[in-house]
Write a protein that binds this DNA or RNA. Sequence first.
DNA 1: GAAAGTACTTTGTAATTCAAAGTTGAAAAA
DNA 2: TTTTTCAACTTTGAATTACAAAGTACTTTC
Lengths: 99, 99
Amino acid sequence: MRISLEQFDKAFENRVRLQIMSVLAVNSAYDFNALKDLLQLTDGNLASHLKALEKEQYISITKSFIGRKPNTQYAITQKGKDAFKKHLQALENLIKQQK
Amino acid sequence: MRISLEQFDKAFENRVRLQIMSVLAVNSAYDFNALKDLLQLTDGNLASHLKALEKEQYISITKSFIGRKPNTQYAITQKGKDAFKKHLQALENLIKQQK
DNA sequence: GAAAGTACTTTGTAATTCAAAGTTGAAAAA
DNA sequence: TTTTTCAACTTTGAATTACAAAGTACTTTC
């Protein structure tokens, strides 16, 4: 017997990125500072994880101003949704085997 | 709101170790070559992942001979069971939020 | 004009991952 | 009895990843 490790998405192996995707999957958009607060990360670290997800085209970035303050919103893309769903399915299968 | 990233176990972040734990959770024991075959890894790579899990005391190692050949068996410990269960619970919660 | 806030980027260091090569000890083959 | 083989590692080295901290650019508020 063999197990394919490729059912799991490398981009979601890190728990910060897993959580970011989880948040963006259930919220139509989320901004930088709210994510930073939610996940308790330094801004540099958060920015680099977001960049990694953007590089995979799993999230999109929209910059604007709210009042006079700059605001960056992150949203999941269709590609991101598909990939995340597939990853969760793989995790679910693994969990199911345990029961 | 805040999310604790610590609900996820660092030792299980890597998908090789996640799969090893999954196999050992449902099999009372598994040997080196069977794991190697199952996961399609080089022996060095597998040995290092097993060592990482042993270091956490999540698995135990039993060396013996089968016929005249050396055989190393790996088994999950109680500590490993508890940690793995907790990790799966965290994953399950994350999945549940998506539905 | 100084300080503060947003959202980065850069820098530097430490940790992680992996393949490949080397090692050990016992057994089988020559 | 020397050699080869096999199991199960350990070591090495290189690439990648993760993270904090510091630096940057632009703007606004004091």
